[in-house]
Structure formats: C-alpha cells, structure tokens
C-alpha cells in the first residue's frame, strides 16, 4: 500500500477498498470450513428468464422427508435429517455432518405462479423451479365523472 503519492488524495480510498475486499475474502474462506456452523441446507437462488431456481444441498434426504410450501412470496422448506442413525454418541471419532430438524425460508422477489412449481431431488441435490406470474398487459382505466356522463348524453342525443 503506497503511503505517499502525487495526484488526488482520494486515491487512498481505492487502496482502502481493496484492502477491505481482501480482508473480506479471507473471512469468506474461513466460513467455508465444514466445522463451522452454517445454515442448513445451503441454498443458491438463480433467475433463468421467467423462472426462479433454488438449489439446495440436501444429501441423505429423500423426497418423503421433505416438506415444501409457498405462501406470500416466501418459500419454506422443512425436514428432519437423521445423519447418525442409531449409533451411540460415544462411538463417534468425528462428527461434522449436521443432523436434526431443520427449516429454511427464502423470500422470492416477485410473485410466483403457485400452481406450476416443480421440484426435483437427485443425488441429494434439490432443484426447485418457481415460475413467475406472467405480467399482464397494461389495463386502461376509464375515468368517470360529469364530463364523461355529458358526453354520453350528447352521443345519445345524436343517435336519436
């Protein structure tokens, strides 16, 4: 990081920004560590044209364990993960895989067509397709009032 420079004094902010970016990146790497608590499951949200796609890493999960629901633009997924089975705790040498009841909600930025949601679960990877509600054509709103009623009356007089 250069200490002294000719030119704009504000350049120093760019260096600071870069330093902070670098620092933030190292924090990110720390959180990638499997031994640290992270929300389960990890989700990614994508937008593909007029569909949203949520992918979730749900290994050991089968379709019958999974409860998905959508209400008011919030997708909620729920399940129980029994990673251990019936193995007593004292037999474990290492335990990093999360287990137990879990629930996650994610809010989707636009209205969703609730009837056409599709979900696939393959090899422990969930894919949830959420189509957006097709935006309707702009609707003209007729403004009623005195003028409008007089004009209709005139029209009627012309006809008669």
């Amino acid at each position: 990081m250069p200490i002294f420079r000719w030119g704009s004094a504000l350049d120093a902010f760019r260096d600071l920004e870069r330093e902070v970016d670098r620092w933030m990146k190292s924090v990110d790497i720390t959180f990638e560590n499997p031994r640290l608590g992270r929300p389960f499951p990890s989700l990614n949200l994508y937008e593909i044209g007029d569909t949203y796609l949520i992918t979730a890493e749900l290994s050991s999960c089968v379709a019958s364990d999974l409860d998905l629901s959508v209400a008011n633009g919030v997708v909620t997924m729920r399940g129980t993960r029994d990673a251990s089975g019936d193995i007593p705790e004292d037999r474990y040498r290492r335990s990093e895989r999360p287990s137990g009841k879990w629930e996650r909600s994610i809010s989707v930025p636009e209205r969703i067509d609730d009837d056409n949601i599709r979900a696939e679960l393959t090899n422990g990877l969930l894919r949830l397709y959420l189509p957006k509600v097709p935006s309707a054509a702009p609707k003209q709103i007729h403004v009623g009032g005195d003028n409008a009623s007089t004009s209709t009356r005139i029209n009627q007089e012309e006809q008669s």
Binding site: P34, R35, E57, L125
Partner: peptide, 19 residues
C-alpha cells in the same frame, strides 16, 4: 463434511457429497 464412527469390526466413514 464427514462423520467417522466405530463399528463392531472397524470404522465407518460417512461423507456428504450432494450432486
């Protein structure tokens, strides 16, 4: 992430490999 536990005849390793 992995789990390692003892079984009657050795060790068992489980790893989450989604996808």
């Amino acid at each position: 992430p992995i789990d390692i536990f003892e079984t009657d005849d050795g060790l068992m390793l489980r790893a989450d490999l989604p996808g």
